Simulated scan of single mutants.
Amino acid sequence: MNFRTPITALFPGASGRIVTALTAHQATNTEEPLSPTDLARDASVAATQVEATLFRLGLLGLIEPRERGGDVRLVAGHVVWKALDGLADLRQRVVEEVRERAAADLTPAPARLTIAGPVADGTATHPADVLELIVVPPSTAPENWSEQADRMAARLSRHLGNVVTLRTAATDADAARFAGPEASLIIPPDSAR
């Protein structure tokens, strides 16, 4: 999966780039109009491609009615913009997915679980880009706990569409050193990065 530009990965071509640019505009400047020229520049597409896509978006009710060549005003409360905004930056969803998988697959919960790598930081552009799980097993881990962790990593690989690697650390300090400063702490959840 391409976590850097997921909308264009799912919807390739000019339309995907235009929708990506409009989603970014919606997230930062919802009330401000956007000229077709600025939109074409932001999306790196030709002006003719912008007009064709805007026509379709207008039919779907995602933008306010406009004349050809007129400024673009988004229908800010439209449910699709909210969904696209969530799709544009999947980092929080990755954190939630890892947390949910850990809760479902690991009994007892790890003492510490951290994620790192291109998927975790939202820069992955290829399925070979990894999500690294760094785990400290609980002190009461049963014999099959490492097998549980391996199964969780395999499930996450399928759910994310990227390679998930698993690294076990003996202590919190080792886990922090393995993960690096840009890692996200998943468990315990009340600790910030």
Rank of each mutant, 00 (worst) to 15 (best):
D105Y: 14
N162T: 02
E132R: 15
V136H: 07
F11K: 03
I18M: 00
R68T: 08
G86W: 04
I186V: 12
E143T: 14
V79D: 03
A175S: 03
F178C: 12
L10E: 10
L113W: 11
T123Q: 13
G58S: 01
V72I: 13
Q148Y: 07
G13Q: 05
A14T: 11
G69A: 01
V95Q: 08
D38R: 15
P181F: 04
R167K: 06
F3G: 03
T165I: 11
D89I: 06
F3T: 09
V50Y: 02
A120Y: 09
S44F: 02
V45K: 08
N162R: 01
V163S: 04
T114L: 15
T123E: 06
A111C: 03
L106W: 11
T37M: 06
R68N: 00
E51M: 03
N29F: 04
A111G: 14
D89K: 13
R91A: 00
A153K: 13
T5D: 10
L113I: 15
G58M: 00
L156T: 00
A40K: 01
A141K: 04
T107I: 14
G70A: 09
W145C: 05
A102Y: 04
K82H: 09
G77Y: 07
G70K: 14
V72E: 01
A47C: 07
R17Q: 14
L160P: 01
L166Q: 08
